[in-house]
Design a protein around this nucleic acid. Structure first.
Length: 602
RNA sequence: GCCCCCGUAGCUCAAUGGAUAGAGCGUCGGCCUCCGAAGCCGCAGGUCGCAGUUCGAGUCUGCGCGGGGGCACCA
């Protein structure tokens, strides 16, 4: 990447300036390059300003002395401007890069950031108690895009869905399935309190009844509930898989939570914590205490606002028994229950989420060696983030390998009101229904179009209208337009005298020339692709692609408006055609990273 | 009470601590005898407040104000 090349050149120049006494000795900071305004150049180093204090010199003077040590380079020119060190890529370099892009083909934009390291993106992982909802759509789109990105950035990527299929969960869901199953077969059976009221569960029960008949009516109730619960989960997972396939999303593995217990991984991980005295018994339950300290009364228990107010009034210092504890509290997590008293007395009961999180993080980071192990979680799990990190540290794992992303929920607007979804309440919106309306491309684009820290408002009444002007079409249109031009050129070439193979390859290898500013700006924009891939791979913020994709389309439009291809002089036309192809490749790549199709016609 | 996220143009959102804060939608005005007008060009319009750190703050820190989420032996 030319950016890294320039960066190293600057670092070397600083060292050289120090060596020859132009700059005093100091520990040089890491050089970073920014994208300045176009008039200023293509890259800008502000290192001279950062060094002003340690070097005890004015920034422009420092910049001058660094610039003096830069070896001449055909790819760029350097210039000092008010303390900045600006770099401008030369026209010859830019022109040469068009062929580089074309030669890289599908690989264009890939980098070696990951160096073959194993990475995992665990995403989706919604409870298998209903069809995939629009909330899951954000999760999987972000996760899948990040997985694509890490792959492009040189990681070996594993895509996983974590199936919450352990303990009482199955039972509760199974009871709902059982009731619907009975009802469908004409037997009276009330839905359980707090059961899953949605159509999806009823449909799933029908599906099962149609497949297996009424055999479970004869079985003892408890037994039937367990069996139907498992069949229900299988059926729901099939449906989720089918839905995600429509969104162009596939997984390498569906990881069963239950397997953590049947395989003994849970016991093994807990034994590690026990050996370090980090598991504490209190009130009949088993707690994880990061520093091994005893559990204090009231810890881990949610209090009402009234209780907080009361406590503050009655005894303002109650929680500050020891001085210095306040500092500790900022870094240490609250103690967390690993196994409830209920679970300990009844092994059939479901463990807490956190109980599974411990062996799961061990399995990911230690057993399978993922680095990073990316988790994509909804904001309802934010409190679990420090816990999993604490568990990882307690297990002696590399905490930095654990990357947990929290995205904000999607809220629905319906009739001018915001609605909070809930599967159990049966007011969820299924991905399949939205897909029928928008198609996968527009849906994925919407899901990626905002930073994960920003909520997405989905207006069901405006969905159709919003869809027609979805910006995804702007990007796809640019791609289709290039394809159209290429088809035209093809036709033209066929109607004229056919070119010999020699001529063809000479066109390909000769130096392309570009003079128009729109051409050069377009090439500049295309060359950002590997930088963007690395930015997404390191920030784990896929919405950067949205901005970039639009910028490419914009730069191409400017080129398209100003630089005609079909009726230009032969050598100009040939060069522009190559640039158009490079643009098409870049657009297609960005779209592919986002999991969006690049249509040849619209 | 404590923790996390957000507050940028009329609306929805961008902006690795860098120079003059950008798009889309909406408004208004232009552009098809010319490779696809799902396009292009132009006008108008903005960093919640107060301190601080920094050569430089929309971005970092503190305190306010406003909105969302969390602090379960639920999932």
């Amino acid at each position: 990447m030319i950016r890294d090349h320039i960066k190293h050149a600057v670092e070397n120049a600083i060292a050289a300036a120090q060596a020859c006494g132009d700059l005093p000795a100091f520990a040089a900071p890491a050089v970073t390059l920014a994208k300045p305004r176009p008039e200023m150049g293509d890259y800008a180093a502000s290192v001279a300003m950062q060094l002003a204090r340690v070097a005890k010199m004015a920034p422009p003077a420092i910049a001058q002395r660094i610039a003096k040590q830069l070896p001449p380079n055909a790819a760029y020119t350097a210039e000092v401007a008010a303390g900045y060190l600006n770099f401008r890529l030369t026209a010859a370099y830019l022109a040469g890069q068009v062929n580089e892009i074309l030669q890289a083909g599908d690989q264009w934009g890939n980098t070696n950031l990951g160096n073959g390291q194993n990475a995992q993106v665990e995403h989706g992982s919604a409870n298998p108690t209903g069809y995939a909802t629009i909330g899951t759509a954000r999760n999987v789109t972000v996760g899948d895009t990040l997985a694509n990105t890490l792959e492009a950035a040189g990681y070996v990527v594993h895509r996983e869905w974590y199936v919450n299929d352990a303990g009482s969960q199955v039972k509760k869901f199974g009871t709902s399935i059982y009731a619907r199953y009975c009802q469908h077969l004409g037997k009276d059976e009330p839905m359980p309190g707090g059961g899953y009221m949605g159509d999806d569960v009823a449909q799933t029960a029908q599906l099962i009844a149609d497949k297996v008949g009424d055999q479970y009516l004869q079985q003892p109730r408890e037994q039937a509930i367990l069996a139907l619960g498992r069949l229900g989960i299988d059926s729901i997972m099939d449906s989720i898989r089918a839905t995600l396939l429509r969104m162009n999303i596939r997984y390498d593995n569906f990881f069963s939570e239950k397997s953590l217990y049947t395989s003994g991984q849970s016991e093994r991980a807990l034994a590690l914590l026990r050996a370090k005295n980090l598991l504490v018994e209190h009130d009949g339950a088993l707690w994880f205490s990061e520093d091994g300290s005893p559990i204090r009364k009231g810890q881990g228990k949610k209090k009402t606002d009234a209780e907080y107010a009361n406590q503050a009034d009655a005894d303002p210092d109650a929680d500050n028994g020891a001085e210095g504890e306040a500092d500790e509290a900022q870094t240490a997590i609250q103690a967390v229950v690993v196994r409830s008293a209920k679970v300990i007395s009844d092994p059939d009961e479901r463990a807490t989420y956190f109980c599974s999180d411990i062996p799961y993080v061990w399995n990911k980071v230690h057993d399978r060696g993922f680095n990073p192990a990316v988790y994509v979680w909804g904001e309802d799990h934010q409190a679990d983030v420090p816990r999993v990190h604490a568990a990882a540290r307690a297990l002696g794992l590399n905490d930095d390998a654990v990357k947990i992303l929290i995205y904000r929920f999607i809220t629905l607007m319906s009739g001018g009101q915001e609605v909070r979804m809930g599967k159990r309440k049966g007011n969820a919106i299924w991905i399949d229904d939205v897909l029928d309306e928008t198609g996968p491309d527009a849906l994925r684009y919407i899901m990626l179009s905002r930073s994960i820290d920003t909520k997405i408002v989905f207006d069901l009444d405006l969905l159709k209208e919003q869809n027609d002007k979805n910006p995804v079409f702007y990007v796809q249109y640019a791609h289709a337009r290039i394809c159209s031009i290429e088809r035209k050129v093809e036709e033209q070439g066929q109607s004229q005298a056919p070119r010999s193979k020699n001529q063809e390859s000479r066109t390909k290898n000769q130096d392309l020339r570009f003079e128009h500013v729109a051409e050069l700006n377009l090439i500049r924009k295309l060359l950002e692709l590997p930088e963007i891939v690395e930015m997404v791979a390191t920030s784990l913020q896929p919405h950067h692609y949205i901005t970039y994709a639009r910028e490419i389309a914009q730069a191409f439009s400017a080129f398209y408006e100003n630089c005609r291809i079909l009726d230009a002089a032969p050598d100009v036309a040939a060069a522009r055609l190559q640039l158009a192809k490079a643009s098409r490749l870049t657009l297609a790549k960005v779209l592919r990273l986002m999991g969006i199709t690049a249509p040849e016609k619209m």
